[in-house]
Design a protein around this nucleic acid. Sequence first.
DNA 1: CTCTCCCGCCACCCG
DNA 2: CGGGTGGCGGGAGAG
Length: 909
Amino acid sequence: MEVNCLTLHDLINPRQSRLDFAIEDGENAQKENIFVDRSRMAPKTPIKNEPIDLSKQKIFTPERNPITPVKLVDRQQAEPWTPTANLKILISAASPDIRDREKKKGLFRPIENKDDVFTDSLQLDVLGDSAVDEFEKQRPSRKQKSLGLLCQKFLARYPSYPLSTEKTTISLDEVAVSLGVERRRIYDIVNVLESLRLVSRVAKNQYGWHGRHSLPRTLRDLQRLGEEQKYEEQMAHLQQKELDLMDYKFGEQKKDGCPDSQDHQLLDFSEPDYPSSSANSRKDKSLRIMSQKFVMLFLVSKTKIVTLDVAAKILIEESQDTPDHSKFKTKVRRLYDIANVLTSLALIKKVHVTEERGRKPAFKWIGPVDFSSSDEELVDVSASVLPELKRETYGHIQFCAKQKLARHGSFNSVQASEKIQRKVNSEPSSPYREKQGPGGYSLEIGSLAAVYRQKIGDKSQGEALASQRVMPPSSCLDTSAPFPGLSVDSAYRVNPLGHQVVSVAPMDMQAFSAQNGVSGQGGLPLASAASDAESLKPALLAGQPLVYVPSPSLFMLCGSLQEGPSPGPGAERDSRGPEVTVAEQSTPPSVQKRLGEERKPQEEEEPATKRQSRDCEDGPFSLVMSKKPSDSTDVAAPKAVGNRGSAPHEDIHVDGQLPAAKEVSGKATAPCLISSEWGNTSRNTEIEKPVKENESAKEPSLLQYLYVQSPAGLNGFNVLLPGTQTPHAVGPPSGQLPPLGVPCMVLPSPTLGPFPVLYSPTMPGPVSSAPSALPSTGPVNFGLPGLGSTAHLLIGPPTMVNPKSSALPSADPQLHGPCSLNLSPVMSRSHSVIQPESPVYGGHSVSVVKLQQSPVPVTPKSTRRTHRETFFKTPGSLGDPVLRRRERNQSRNTSSAQRRLEIPSSGAD
DNA sequence: CTCTCCCGCCACCCG
DNA sequence: CGGGTGGCGGGAGAG
C-alpha cells in the first residue's frame, strides 16, 4: 500500500519523489522549529521532500492530517483535509495575533511554525502549485529534522528549573505526537536527558521532568567518576596514538585505572521524586551510559574538548567490543546523537580539531565547569572563589572574581534563544545546527554574574573595582575580592540573570584596547555602549569594555565564541583559524605543536599584540580562567584554579603557549580564553553592520539591548546587551532592538565555565549615552527585574563554520528581529511576548529576571509549563510520524489543536 | 569525498 | 504475546 501511495505521490508531485508526507512528518515540525521564516518554513510542510516513511503515511490518521494538508497541495485526494487541518485554519484565523507575532518575529515558534506553516501550506495549496514550489524550495533540510532541534523543542516544553513543587510528567507518546516525531526519537532524547538526571522514568511511557536543578551535582558526580576512571589519561593516550596511527587500536589505551566496566560507574538514573523504573534493565542503556561517559570525558578533559573519535574509541574499549570499524562508526553515530542533545542543553558545542590527519569533529564543553558547590541550586559566588580565576596563558584577562554561577544557567532560555537564532539564521538551506555559521545561540546576559567594566583611560572605575578587575593579557590577577554588591547566590542559581558588573582597571582596558587594535581591528574603540543608567547600563558604558561573568548560559556563548572565531580582518577567517584554536586546545601536544607551527607564520605577520588578540580569536579579550572542576571540595578552594581540569579551550590563540597546553596528558593546562572573532575586524564593521541594517533605528539611549553581532567570520555570535531595562525594547523584535553597534565580547572561561566574560569593546556613541550610568561602585545588574533586562547573547552556531561572513550578515538581520523578541520579553518573563517557541524560555527567563533585581532568588518556575506544552503541541506536528504504534494510544494528542489555541493567548500576552 | 545522522528494522524485555 | 524500548547500521543529505 505504502508503496502505492508513494507512487501516487510521486506522480502527483514529481519533485517529491519520496513522498512528502513530510508535512505530516513531525520532523517537518522540527524543521519548523528551526528558525526558518515561515515563508521559508512553509515549504517544510508541503515540500516534504523527505522520504517519508511510508509507515508514517500509513499512519496517517486524521490527527496527523495536519500534515496532510500539505499533501493536499500536492495531492489532496490522497488525504483529504482533516478536521485537524480545518481546525488549524480556524485557529490561525482566530489567533491572528499569533500569526503576527510569528511574522514579526518569525523566529520563535518552533512548533507553531509548523502550524503556521501548515496553514500556509494549506493556503498555498489553495493558491496553487507555485506556492508549493516555493515551499519546496524552502523545504527544511535534513538538519531541520535533527535530533538537536527536536531536543530543543522537547526542552522548550519544560522549565529548566521547575519548582520543586511542580512535578512534570512527560508522556512519551504525547511528546512524540506534539513534536511530530516518532517515539523512537524521543527515546534518544530522553535517554540522554536521563543520563544527566534531567528526567527519570516514572513508568512506562512516562518520564518525570526534573529540570536542571540537579545538573551540577550530576556533572560533579560524573566528573568524579571520570577522574576515577582516568579518562583524561585515556584520552591523552588515544590522542597521541591517533597521531601516530590512524587506526584505532583499542586495548592498549586503556589505562590503568579504567577498567572497562564503566558501566558500573555510571550514575544512577533513578530519581527520588520519580521512582525511576530503574531502568537499568535491558541492555543497559547504552545510550545513557554512553552519554554519561561522554560527558565525563569533557569534564575530565583539560581542554574541555573531546573529539568523537577519541570518545568512540574509549567507549569501544570500555565496552570491550572488538574494535572494528563498524563498531566505531556506530559509536560515532551514537555520539552524534548524544552530542545533539547535549548541545541542545547548551553543555557542549561543536568544534573541530585540526590534526595532521585533518579536521576532526569534536565537541567542546561549554557547560558549567565548576561544580564545587555541590549542588545545584545555589550558586555561591563566594568571594573566595573569585580569586580562583586566573588568567592564563596569553594575556588574558584574569578574572578575579569568581562565582559559582550557577551552574544552572537559564538554559532554557538559552536554548530558546538558540532556536530563535537558528531560525533566524537558518535559511532553509543553511544548516542551522551547530554548524551553521550564522546560527547562533542566544544567551541571556542576565545570566552573567558579574560584569567588569572599565573605561579605557578612566581609572576611576577601575579603582573602585580594583579588586575585581580584568587584567590585561599578560598580567594575571587574582582578584579575590568578591564582587561588590554582588550577591549572587541563590538567585543566580535559579536565575543566572543576576549580573554584576565590575569595573575593569583602566590599565586593563588599555590593554584591551591595544589588543583590539592590534588584533586587527584597527583599533576598536573599546568604548562600549552601554546604558549605564539602567541596570544594564553599566555594561554598556561607552568606551568601556565590559566583562561579564555570565552564568552557564554565558558559557555557552563563550564556547561558541571560541569556536568560531571569525577571521579578524575580514570576515573571513579561514576556517583553519578556528579549528586551529580548537586543535590547540584539544589536540595532543604533537598536534598542538603543529598547530603552533602553522600559526607561526601568522604570528610573524602579526605583531605580538595582535597575535594575542588573534589568538584569542580575535577577541579583544582573552580570559583565562582556570578552574578546576575537581571535586566539590576542590571547588571550594579557589586556588587551584587553573590547573587541572581547566583547559582553556580557547587556547587557540596562544601559540607560544601551546606547549603548555600540551599538557593534555598532564593535568595542568594553560587555559586561555579566546575571544572569538570579535576582536578584530569584526567588531566594527561587520558586527555593526548587521545590526545597523536591521536596526538602523536603534536608539542609543533608549537602547535597551546592545546587540552585538558576530562578525561574519564568526559563527554568528551575537550579543545582545540589555542596555536598558525597558521591557518593551525587548519586545519588539525588529526595530527596537537597539542593536548597538557595540561589539561585545563574550569570553567564556573554559575552565570556569561559569564565568564567561562579556566584553564590549566599543559602543556606539549614542548607545553609550544611555548606559553610562553604571554605578562604578560595583557590580551592576544587567537585567531588569523582570523584564527584558536580561541581555541576550547570540552566539553563532557552535561549529565553526564559517569563514564566510556573508552568511552572517544576512542572518543578522533576521536575527535582530527575532532576537529582540526573544530576548527580552520572552526571556524575561513577560510571557506575553514569548512566542510559542519561547514559551519555555519565557518561563525561565522570567525567573531569571526576577532574580536579577531582587536579591531573592527567583525560582524558575515553570510558570507556564502547562501552557507551554500546549504551545508546543501543534496539531500539525502531530501528524505524522508518530503514529505507528502510537496511533492507538495517541488519540490523546489530538487535543493539541485546542491547546494551540491557547497558545496564542498565552503567547500573546 | 567526508561528516552527519536520520530513519526505522527488529531484538530485547517486561508485564 | 503484545507493546514499550532502544541497539544498530544502512544509506542519504550536506558540505
